[in-house]
Simulated scan of single mutants.
Amino acid sequence: MVQQVRGVVAHGKGEPVRIETILVPDPGPGEAVVKVQACGVCHTDLHYREGGINDEFPFLLGHEAAGVVESVGEGVTEVAPGDFVILNWRAVCGQCRACRRGRPWYCFNTHNAKQKMTLADGTELTPALGIGAFAEKTLVAAGQCTKIDPAASPAAAGLLGCGVMAGLGAAINTGNVGRGDSVAVIGCGGVGGAALMGSRLAGAGRIIAVDVDERKLETARKLGATHTVNSRATDAVEAIRELTDGFGADVVIDAVGRPETYGQAFHARDLAGTVVLVGVPTPEMRLELPLLDVFGRGGALKSSWYGDCLPSRDFPMLIDLYLQGRLDLDAFVTEKIALDDVEESFARMQTGDVLRSVVEF
């Protein structure tokens, strides 16, 4: 039976979002309906509203979510009604060339629910990142549900669904930060903050936070930074080199995603060091680097997509660390808001006043 729920919909580029009645069908084969308990307000949702992802309006926004499986369709075995889950946008296929080579975190054929949720008039919705969790209930592929310990706070756990996992994974999975390594993180919002925390969790020795906002740098200290650099007042590359005995950092993570910050990351790494790009550029951006320097410095230039995570592996492990008190996911929850407050939270996001606003149902 089709259910009617409330959800946040973006109807056109730059238009304020609206609360609409959403029709959620019963799950078909391989699908699940999840009762959403909490969903973070991610910058990607704002990108959708601004038309920065694609133009497949109207969008049902929201994707950093945790909730309880309400029902499942035919053939679903990985989750069952009553399971507490984090929703993910990497439901690996198990069949593509990456999966067959034992690298499912690179899956080239991730899947979503085949049925569409709609508005009351039948207009089909495009769910953000195949999830659409700014709604009381949502329809997803069962593989997008990762079962975790129900003792975890939904508001904190849901953030692993996107931004916090992206930052943690950029450090731990992509950057392969190890004990005693020096790490610099450029951009200390939610993703950059998670990269700082991931670096500390991995045992990095010197963790340098770079930003232009002193408020974010203060937060960065709480999340694991041993040193901070205000790049509005100081040359970031020189400062990072000075803090690493003149060599540069072993791993530099660009959590901004602009040519200027990537250039800083490239020149601030040690010889044979690693640059990780996890900040998301816009389509018109172009990068220019001296090719001789790319050759001569060695090392690795990497991009981190979703923190190179495998949800079935990483989410339960990180939640265990959270419940042990070793990973402070609650630190990313700046405020808890109602579904009706999402548009206002976008404005607060632009001012840099919050790490994450989280919608609670």
Rank of each mutant, 00 (worst) to 15 (best):
V177Y: 00
G178F: 02
T244R: 05
D245N: 13
N173P: 08
E284G: 09
L201A: 15
G263N: 13
D270Y: 07
A195R: 03
G175E: 02
R286K: 15
A225Q: 07
A249Q: 01
T244N: 10
K222G: 13
A268L: 03
G198P: 00
L271S: 08
T234A: 09
T274H: 08
A255L: 04
P259D: 14
A209V: 08
Q264C: 03
V252W: 00
M197A: 12
G180V: 04
G205V: 08
A268Q: 05
E218P: 06
V164P: 00
G187T: 04
V276F: 10
L287Y: 15
P283Q: 12
P290D: 11
V185I: 14
A202E: 13
A170T: 06
G161N: 07
D250N: 13
P283C: 10
G169Y: 03
I207G: 00
L168W: 05
M197N: 08
L271C: 04
E260R: 13
I207C: 05
G198I: 04
T219Q: 14
T282E: 15
L159C: 07
S182K: 09
T261I: 11
A170E: 02
G224T: 06
V229Y: 04
A166H: 00
T244F: 06
R221F: 05
M197K: 12
D235R: 06
T174M: 11
P290I: 05
V280H: 05
R200S: 08
G257E: 05
T282Y: 14
T228N: 06
T234S: 09
N173C: 08
A204F: 01
A239D: 10
L160I: 11
V275P: 02
A255I: 05
G161T: 06
A166E: 01
G190W: 00
L217H: 11
D213R: 11
P259R: 12
A265I: 04
V210K: 01
T274M: 04
L287V: 15
F266C: 02
G193D: 02
V229C: 11
T234Q: 15
R269I: 07
M165W: 06
V210N: 00
G167C: 05
G263E: 12
L277V: 14
F295Y: 15
E284V: 12
I253A: 02
A249N: 05
V164R: 00
E214D: 15
L287T: 12
L159I: 07
A220E: 05
A233V: 13
A171K: 03
D235V: 11
A204G: 09
E238M: 10
G187I: 03
V294N: 09
R179F: 06
